[in-house]
Simulated scan of single mutants.
Amino acid sequence: MKRAVIVQAKRTPIGKKDGILRDIQPHELAAPLLQHLADGLEEKIEDIILGNVVGPGGNVARVAALEAGLPLSAAGITIDRQCSAGLEAIRIACYFVQGGAGSCYIAGGVESTSTSPFPARARFSPEKIGDPDMGVAAEFVAEKYAITREMQDEYALLSYTRSWEAYDKGYFHQEIIPIGDFHQDEELLRKRKMEVLLNRAKPIFKKNGTVTAANSCGIHDGASAVLVMEESMAVNHGFQPVLRFLDSEVAGVLPHYPGAAPIPAIQALLKRNSLTIEDIDLIEINEAFSSKIVTCTKELSIPYEKLNVCGGALTLGHPYGASGSIMITRLFYEVQRRKDIKYVLAAIGSGGGIGVAVLFEVAT
């Protein structure tokens, strides 16, 4: 079996909806990433796979590839698995390599909520089952798994602190390709008094609820992508493999509990590979809501010390289709800063009650 490895990873700055990236269309956000990752390999890129959720429709990946000036042969395909789309794009690219369909892909995701033509979200579930908004569903998760407001706020503060520590150390600078004059995540342009905000915030989705604006992610724009290659090809072209794809899993749960969807996906993935949480050195789970993260850590016995160690979407933002790829980009750089890291895992839960989990081993 051929082995798929990630040899490069980058992202744009993340901007607030109607913020610094407000006038940039999805294909324009993605194009600089494609140019960077394809540099010197333009004729070798066999396809571009991008996740996108609220874009203009059509094939954003194809338009971005053309905008980037890539060869016409790099056709491009756009997929939508809601918030899992960017992670799913990488998963697909890895399986293409593993199965021998190709040897070199760019995969990731892009989202411009600022330019989205849709006034409302798409349906997650048929009415006969129930179709709660994600915030309401975050309350459902908190209720079902007995996650208190205090538990959620505690994690939100931890994530915020970690994000700023990572920024101060220059970690995010390693990840980012500037877009025009913008080279920094918009949420990090000004430090907030997070403890005060957490204390003051009121429930926004349910009376007497636990989910607030302070322990939830915002709505954002951004893009991220990685270069996936067959391992021997990567080495022959002078690349150092960093993350080697091992396996992945997709699970479905009741659409009322999307935040819990990573749990069965991670459990099945670990079981099939004869691993436990103790064997995984670093874990990224998308921080759409604190209730989601606290639930996953509680049910899977994940220590905070190995989870989202540089913070995540609660601080930086959640550009839907890009978030899964942003998590892989974060892992790509974090494993290179550490020693004795063997296994890493990324997971995300998304609208409709879908969980995606992907397992890598460190190749360096």
Rank of each mutant, 00 (worst) to 15 (best):
A137N: 04
P241R: 14
R162P: 03
D168A: 12
V211I: 09
Q240M: 15
A261S: 08
T148S: 15
V136L: 13
E143T: 11
A234D: 13
M229E: 10
N236K: 15
A225V: 04
L254S: 08
T161N: 14
E139G: 05
K206N: 00
A156R: 02
C217H: 06
L227V: 08
Y160D: 06
I177R: 05
H183W: 14
S224F: 03
A201N: 04
Y145A: 09
A201S: 10
G209E: 06
A156D: 01
F245W: 15
F245A: 05
F205Y: 12
K144V: 03
H173R: 15
A142S: 12
A223E: 02
F182N: 14
H237V: 02
D185Y: 13
E186M: 11
L198V: 01
K206V: 03
V228R: 11
G252M: 03
H183T: 07
A146R: 10
I147K: 07
K144P: 00
V250H: 02
V253F: 08
G180V: 08
A225S: 03
V228F: 11
K169Q: 12
F239R: 15
F205W: 13
S159Q: 07
E187C: 11
C217D: 02
A146Y: 02
G218K: 09
F245E: 06
P178Q: 04
P203R: 09
I219W: 00
D247G: 09
G238R: 15
E187F: 00
V250I: 05
E249F: 10
L188D: 08
W164P: 07
E249G: 00
D168F: 00
V228L: 08
I147Y: 05
L246K: 12
H256K: 06
G180C: 10
V211L: 03
Q152K: 08
E143M: 06
K202Y: 03
E249C: 10
V226S: 02
Q184C: 14
G170L: 04
H173N: 13
S232C: 04
H256V: 01
L197Q: 04
A251G: 00
A138H: 08
V226W: 06
A142W: 07
A166W: 01
M233V: 15
D247P: 08
E139I: 06
Y155C: 05
I204F: 06
Q152S: 12
P241L: 13
A225T: 02
G252E: 02
P178T: 07
V211E: 01
A251V: 00
E231K: 15
R190N: 13
A146N: 14
H237K: 15
G259K: 03
P178S: 04
S232M: 10
H220Q: 07
H256P: 00
P255C: 00
S216F: 02
R162C: 04
S163M: 11
Q152W: 01
P255G: 00
V242W: 06
Q240C: 14
I147Q: 02
D185Q: 06
V196P: 00
A137D: 04
L254N: 07
A234G: 13
I177C: 06
G259A: 03
R200Q: 09
K169T: 11
L243M: 08
V235F: 15
